[in-house]
Simulated assay, not measured.
Amino acid sequence: MRLTVLGGCGAWPEPGSACSGFLVEHDGFRLVLDLGYATMPRLPGPVDAVFISHGHPDHCADLNPLLRARSMSEDQPPPLPVYALPGALDAVLALDRPGMLDDAYVLHDVVAGQPFTIGPFAATTRLLPHWRPNAGIRLAAGGRVLAYTGDCGPSPEVVALARDADLLVAEATHLTAVPPDVLGMLSSVPDAGRQAREAGARHLLLTHLWPGTDHAAAVAQAAAEFPGPIEVAVPGLVITPG
């Protein structure tokens, strides 16, 4: 299993960067987790499936250009399997005229907590606290486990999702304390570190940092809670879990 970061900015992309998006590969199968702003041009080639954690545009906006490219392509690739919670993608799929993208994708509704497969990956999801329904996902393949939270506040469900994972990709929007007006809906860097430790995860990748966050400071804050390897999601970073 191999993960390549397409982007890791929260809310909007910094210059030269992109919002949430991760390419996960195993046995030649290429799965994308989230397609936020500016991620689609960073895809290094065709993909086999897409999973979207929730319907906020910094996680799903670039599904539209990806499907447009498939719909308007002369070689007419097969419909792309897209996995998401019911209704999560209604807005982004309605951006074009009715029917324009219908042949470009097949939508699979994800039932939180119900196991399913995506190519070679055994997948399970958990609903994690956020303003919109958000599905964190756990992927297992080749004896390795990757967990990705999407956006969420701290929760025992995050710890359960990441239990003994080789890699936890964890939302860490705020460097220190989460402001009162978003408390419970977003996480801090210390939250991410603490939950990674409680879960027994082996490697922590901080993502969804607020634009302008000092990455070295973020790693230091997380290291006060988590004893294992810590990195910040930046475009082009490649991690082989385990």
Rank of each mutant, 00 (worst) to 15 (best):
Gly36Met: 05
Val110Lys: 00
His174Ser: 13
Ala172Ile: 03
Ser71Asp: 03
Val234Ala: 02
Ala123Cys: 12
Glu157Ser: 13
Gln76Arg: 14
Ala177Val: 04
Gly8Cys: 14
Gly28Asp: 14
Pro46Asn: 14
Tyr37Met: 15
Gly28Ile: 11
Pro86Ala: 12
Asp151Lys: 04
Tyr105Met: 04
Pro227Cys: 03
Gly143Ser: 12
Thr117Gly: 15
Asp151Val: 03
Ala94Thr: 00
Trp12Pro: 03
Pro211Ala: 01
Ala91Leu: 01
Gly10His: 11
Ala172Trp: 03
Leu107Asn: 11
Ala104Asp: 01
Arg70Asn: 02
Ser188Pro: 05
Val32Leu: 05
Ala49Met: 08
Leu168Gln: 00
Phe121Val: 09
Pro190Ser: 05
Glu157Cys: 09
Leu127Cys: 10
Ala88Val: 01
Leu186Gly: 02
His54Gln: 12
Gly55Asp: 06
His56Cys: 06
Pro227Ile: 00
Leu89Cys: 05
Pro115Arg: 00
Phe226Glu: 05
His108Ser: 07
Asp75Met: 02
Gly28Val: 12
Leu33Ser: 09
Pro190Ala: 02
Asn64Gln: 07
Gln195Arg: 13
Leu101Phe: 07
Pro229Thr: 00
Glu171Lys: 02
Ala104Pro: 02
Gly55Ala: 06
Asp214Ser: 07
Gly99Tyr: 02
Pro81Gln: 03
Arg30Glu: 07
Pro179Met: 03
Pro129Val: 01
Gly8Tyr: 06
His208Gln: 10
Gly228Asp: 14
His208Ser: 09
Asp103Gly: 15
Ala123Ile: 01
Asp27Ser: 11
Ala112Ser: 14
Val219Glu: 15
Val47Ser: 04
Ala141Asn: 13
Ser188Cys: 06
Ser17Glu: 06
Tyr105Trp: 08
Ile230Trp: 07
Pro79Arg: 01
Ile230Ser: 03
Gly228Cys: 09
Gln221Lys: 10
Pro78Tyr: 00
Arg202Gly: 15
Cys19Arg: 00
Ala122His: 15
His130Glu: 14
Gly136Trp: 08
Cys60Phe: 14
Leu3Phe: 10
Gly136Cys: 05
Gly28His: 14
Glu74Leu: 08
Leu167Gln: 10
